[in-house]
Design a protein around this nucleic acid. Structure first.
Length: 802
RNA sequence: GCCGAAGUGGCGGAAUUGGCAGACGCACGGGACUUAAAAUCCCGCGAUUGUAAAAAAUCAUACCGGUUCGAGCCCGGUCUUCGGCACCA
C-alpha cells in the first residue's frame, strides 16, 4: 500500500470538521487549557512557511493536552484592519472589506490544508462590526475613566502627496510611495494613558512566566528611572524652570540649562529674550526636522542661548545661562534640564562646542577626556553640602536637602509615552465619540454601537492629512447624544493595535451581543495558559494588551490581573540562502506547494524538526524530503506487526524512554529532539524481526500531535478502537526507563581510555575492580602512580595519575 | 552607545545543565536490487598521524586565560554575527 497523503489528509480534515473533534466547551469537568497563537493579518500574499511554525507548535501542544485529558481552547481569527489592505483599496478602488473577505478565505483554506485543530466555531475577525462594537465599547470605558484624552501631537505628513503617513510608511525621512519629503504636522489626537499603568506593567511581570528576554525588553521599553524634580528660579522673574535629573548629586556642576525647542517658556518670555528671532528660527528649523534627521545627527549638538534669560542654581545660588537645543525632548521629564557637562556626555559635547565651563563635582574620572558618568563610583567634590559622599548616598542626601528647602522632590520617570490612538485612515475602527458645541467630547451611548464605517468614494486621506471620513459631512454631522444639539463625529479611526489588544477575550464567547464576553466564560478560560508569538510583538502588542487587560480588570470586566500566564516566542524561518524570506529576494517558500508535493504531515514534521524552536533556521528542501522519508517508513510499520501481548521485550525499555522524552520535550517546546527521538525509535523498530500492536499503538499516539493525519489513518487501517483523538496519552514507568547495565567511561587524567560495562546499581568497589582489570587502563597508567580515583555513580570513572 | 540572544563537522542541529562532544536528519562515498535510472535497503562518514587492514595516538565546541579529577557548559577578558532600542537628562 502506498502513502497517499493527499487523500488521507483530506479525509481526516473532513472527519474533524464533521465530528467537531476539536470544539472546546465552556463547561466541562476536565481541567481547562487555553492555548493561543497570534492571529494573522490576512495579507494578499497568503501564508508563507514562517506562519505554520508557531501554529504547528501550539497545535502539537493542544493536541497532546487533549489526549492528556484537558478541555482545550485553541482558537484562530483575523487581525484584518491594516495598511496593505487600505493601500490596495486606494490603488484599485476595491472596498477593503471585499479584499479582506477574499484574503481571509484564502488564509483559512491554507490553514485547513495543514490540519490544525483550531476550534473554527470561534473564529473572529477584528473588522466585523459585531467584533469592533466591543473594541469601541472598551474605548468608551477608557474615556469614562479618564484614560482617553485629546492632545496635540505631531503626525507624519508627506509634503508631495499631501497625505498623513503611518510611521512604517516613512522610510529614511521620505514617503514610502512617492519619495517626497515627510514633515511633522501637529494634530489634535486621541491619547490613551498607558503611562498611568507603567509601574504595574513592570511589577506584574513577577506574576507571569515570560522568557527573560521578553521581560527585559518590556522593562526597557517602559524605561523607569529614579531621580528628582528640581526648581531653578528664572532670574528677575517669579517663575521657576523645573527640570528632571537622575543625578541631583551633581547639581553643583550645573553650569547652564537647556530647554527643548517646544518649551512654552520661549514664547512666554519672548519679550525678555533679546535674540528672540534667532531663537524662533532655531525652533522652526528643528520642528521641520523629522525624527530621522534629529536622530541622524545624534552627536552634532546645536542650540542657541536665550539672551536675557538666566537661571539661578537653587543650591549654590550661582547665575547660569539658559539655552534652547533639540537634544532636549519636550516629551520626557519636564522638557528642560540642568546641564552638568562634567558628568553627562551630551552636556559635555554641547559645552565643548559652546565653550561652557566643565566643572568636576564627582571625582574618579578624567574630565579632560570625557564626561565621567558612573553614578556609583565617584565621590562628591566641590559640593559643599555633600562633599565626600558617594553614589546613592550622595543622591539621597541631596534630595533630602532639596526637600527641606522646598526646591525639589524625589521623582520617578518613564520613557514610556502615552499611546497615540488616532489614525487619519479609513480602514480602522471608527472612534465612537462626537464633539458637541455645548457638551464637548461625548461618547456614543452603548445602544448606538457599533458605529460602523460608512461607504466612501475614496480611501485616500484628505490633502490636509485628515481621514477620508472627514470628507463626508453627511456622516460626521450628527446630534449630541446628551443635549441633542449639533455635534460632529470624530473622523479619525483606531490604530491596528486596538483589535488585537483584547481578541483573546472574545474567543471565550465570540458570539455574545450583550457583552464582550460572558463573565462566566472569562472566569472559566482566563488567563491564557500559553501564548506564543513573534519577538517583534514583545514590546508594543504585548504591552498594549496587558494595559487594556489591567484596565478591564480594574473595572471588573475580567477576573485576572494579567492576560497571559505564559508567553513564548518562535524563531523566524529563513530562505535556503539563510536570508530573510522576501518576495524581492525570490526565496519565499509557499506552504501550499509543500503540502501538495510532500503532504501536510511532512510540512508539520519538518517545521518542528528544522531546529531549536526559538531560533531562526533556514529552510531546506532536502530536509523536507528527509521528513517525508521518515513518514513513508512509518506508513509501512503495520507490515511488521505480529500477534503478541504488550510491548516487545526487546523494545520495552526504549519505548518507555521515548514516551518520557517526547512528553517532556513537547512540554518544553523542544520539538526537534522529540521528532529525533521518534526517528530513533522507528529505527529500533525496523531493526526488529517484528513488533506488536502495542508497540505500534504507542508510537502512533506519540507521533499523532505532530503528524495527525497519517497516524489516524494507520490507526484506523489496523482496526484499533475509536480514534487517536479520543485515546489517552501513553504513560511511562520511570523504573522501566532505566538501563540494567551501564557502560562507564574510564578516564585517566580526564581522557577516556576504556569503557567498562557494569550493572546499573553496582557499588564503587565492583566498578573499581572492573576498571583495574582493563588492559587499556593499565597501559595508560603505565609506571605513574595513582593519586586519586573518582567515581560518579553511573556516569564516569576517573583515575588521576602523576 | 545601551539591552538581549548566539558562535559546535560539508550543512540544520544534539549533548540528562560540570561527566564518552557530534544524537537525529541532510549532503557525500561505497555496496545490494534493477537492462538502466529513480525509489528502497545495507555499510561508512570531524581532522591529523598511524596501519595491508586494524589497533592506537594527538588535536578539535570563535579566541586568550582561569577554576576543577574533569569545561561546549562555570568565572575573567577579547573578537564576530544577528535581533531590539537609541540624545530619555
Amino acid at each position: 500500500m502506498y502513502y497517499d497523503y493527499g487523500k488521507i489528509e483530506k479525509k481526516w480534515q473532513e472527519i474533524w470538521d464533521k465530528e467537531e473533534t476539536f470544539k472546546a466547551s465552556n463547561s466541562s469537568d476536565k481541567p481547562k487549557f487555553y492555548a493561543l497563537v497570534e492571529f494573522p493579518y490576512p495579507s494578499g500574499q497568503g501564508l508563507h512557511v514562517g506562519h505554520p511554525r508557531p501554529y504547528t507548535a501550539l497545535d502539537i501542544i493542544s493536541r497532546k493536552k487533549r489526549l492528556e485529558g484537558y478541555n482545550v481552547l485553541f482558537p484562530m481569527g483575523w487581525d484584518a484592519f491594516g495598511l496593505p489592505t487600505e493601500n490596495y483599496a486606494i490603488k484599485t478602488g476595491v472596498h477593503p472589506a471585499v479584499v479582506t473577505r477574499d484574503n481571509v478565505a484564502h488564509f483559512k483554506k491554507q490553514l485547513k490544508m495543514i490540519g490544525y485543530s483550531f476550534d473554527w466555531s470561534r473564529e473572529i475577525n477584528t473588522t466585523d462590526p459585531a467584533y469592533y462594537k466591543w473594541t469601541q465599547w472598551i474605548f468608551i470605558q477608557l474615556f469614562k475613566h479618564g484614560l482617553a484624552y485629546k492632545k496635540e501631537f505631531p503626525i507624519n505628513f508627506c509634503t508631495s502627496c499631501k497625505v498623513g503617513l503611518a510611521n512604517e510608511e516613512v522610510v529614511n525621512g521620505h514617503c514610502e510611495r512617492c519619495g517626497g519629503e515627510v514633515i511633522r504636522v501637529v494634530k489634535n489626537q486621541w491619547m490613551l494613558k498607558i503611562t498611568e499603568y507603567a509601574q504595574r506593567l513592570i511589577d506584574d511581570l513577577e506574576l507571569v512566566d515570560y522568557p527573560d528576554r521578553v521581560k527585559s525588553s518590556q522593562i526597557n521599553w517602559i524605561g523607569r528611572s529614579e531621580g528628582a524634580q528640581v526648581d531653578f528660579q528664572l532670574k528677575d522673574t517669579d517663575e521657576k524652570l523645573t527640570v528632571y535629573t537622575t543625578r541631583p548629586d551633581t547639581i553643583y556642576g550645573a553650569t547652564y540649562m537647556v530647554i527643548s525647542p517646544e518649551h512654552p517658556y520661549i514664547e512666554q518670555y519672548a519679550s525678555r529674550i533679546s535674540n528672540i528671532d534667532e531663537v524662533r528660527s532655531y525652533c522652526q528649523e528643528s520642528a521641520k526636522k523629522s525624527d530621522f534627521e534629529r536622530t541622524e545627527l545624534v552627536k552634532d549638538k546645536t542650540g542657541v542661548r536665550l539672551e536675557g534669560l538666566d537661571a539661578v542654581n537653587p543650591i549654590s545660588g550661582e547665575v547660569i545661562p539658559v539655552f534652547v537645543s533639540d537634544y532636549v525632548l519636550m516629551t520626557y521629564g519636564t522638557g528642560a534640564i540642568m546641564a552638568v557637562p562634567a558628568h553627562d556626555q551630551r552636556d559635555y559635547e554641547f559645552a565643548k562646542k559652546f565653550g561652557l565651563e566643565i566643572r568636576e563635582v564627582i571625582s574618579g574620572g578624567d574630565i579632560s577626556e570625557a564626561a565621567y558618568t558612573d553614578a556609583s563610583g565617584g565621590t562628591a567634590v566641590n559640593s559643599p553640602l555633600i562633599n565626600g559622599l558617594k553614589g546613592k548616598e550622595a543622591i539621597s542626601k541631596m534630595i533630602e536637602i532639596m526637600e527641606e528647602k522646598g526646591i525639589g522632590t524625589r521623582k520617578v520617570n518613564y520613557k514610556l509615552r502615552d499611546w497615540v490612538f488616532s489614525r487619519q485612515r479609513y480602514w480602522g475602527e471608527p472612534i465612537p465619540m462626537v464633539k458637541c458645541d455645548k457638551c464637548g467630547w461625548v461618547p456614543l451611548p452603548e445602544d448606538q454601537l457599533p458605529l460602523e464605517l460608512p461607504q466612501v468614494d475614496n480611501y485616500m486621506t484628505t490633502d490636509t492629512g485628515e481621514s477620508p471620513l472627514a470628507n463626508m459631512p453627511e456622516w460626521y454631522n450628527t446630534t449630541c447624544p446628551v443635549c441633542g444639539s449639533h455635534a460632529v463625529r470624530e473622523t479619525d479611526t483606531m490604530p491596528n493595535w486596538a483589535g488585537s489588544s483584547w481578541y483573546y477575550l472574545r474567543y471565550t464567547d465570540p458570539h455574545n451581543d450583550k457583552a464582550l464576553a460572558d463573565p462566566e466564560a472569562l472566569k472559566y478560560w482566563l488567563p491564557v495558559n500559553w501564548y506564543n508569538g513573534g519577538m517583534e510583538h514583545t514590546t508594543l502588542h504585548l504591552l498594549y494588551s496587558r494595559f487594556w487587560h489591567k484596565f478591564l480588570y480594574d473595572i471588573g470586566v475580567v477576573p485576572t490581573p494579567e492576560p497571559y500566564a505564559k508567553r513564548t516566542s518562535h524563531g523566524m524561518i529563513l530562505g535556503e540562502n539563510n536570508e530573510k524570506m522576501s518576495k524581492s529576494k525570490g526565496n519565499v517558500v509557499n506552504p501550499d506547494e509543500v503540502v501538495t508535493s510532500y503532504g501536510a504531515d511532512t510540512l508539520r514534521t519538518y517545521e518542528m524538526f528544522i531546529g531549536d524552536f526559538t531560533q531562526a533556521a533556514p529552510w531546506s528542501e532536502n530536509g523536507v524530503k528527509g521528513c517525508k522519508r521518515f513518514l513513508d517508513r512509518v506508513f509501512k510499520l503495520p507490515d511488521m506487526v505480529k500477534p503478541g501481548k504488550g510491548y516487545s521485550p526487546a523494545l520495552e525499555k526504549y519505548i518507555h524512554q521515548t514516551i518520557k522524552k517526547v512528553t517532556e520535550d513537547i512540554d518544553s517546546m523542544k520539538f526537534n529532539t522529540a521528532v529525533a527521538a521518534l526517528m530513533k525509535l522507528l529505527n529500533l523498530y525496523t531493526d526488529q524481526p517484528s513488533i506488536t500492536d502495542e508497540d505500534l499503538r504507542t508510537f502512533l499516539i506519540l507521533l499523532n500531535p505532530t503528524a495527525p493525519h497519517i497516524t489516524e489513518e494507520i490507526w484506523q487501517t489496523c482496526g484499533y478502537p475509536s480514534q487517536i483523538a479520543h485515546t489517552p496519552w501513553p504513560k511511562y514507568d520511570e523504573a522501566k526507563c532505566a538501563e540494567d547495565m551501564v557502560e562507564i567511561p574510564v578516564q585517566v587524567n580526564g581522557k577516556v581510555r576504556d569503557k567498562v560495562t557494569v550493572a546499573a546499581d553496582a557499588d564503587e568497589e565492583t566498578v573499581k575492580e572492573a576498571v583495574h582489570q582493563s588492559a587499556a587502563v593499565a597501559r595508560s597508567v603505565g609506571s605513574s602512580s595513582i593519586v586519586r580515583e573518582i567515581y560518579v555513580k553511573g556516569k564516569i570513572y576517573n583515575i588521576v595519575v602523576k
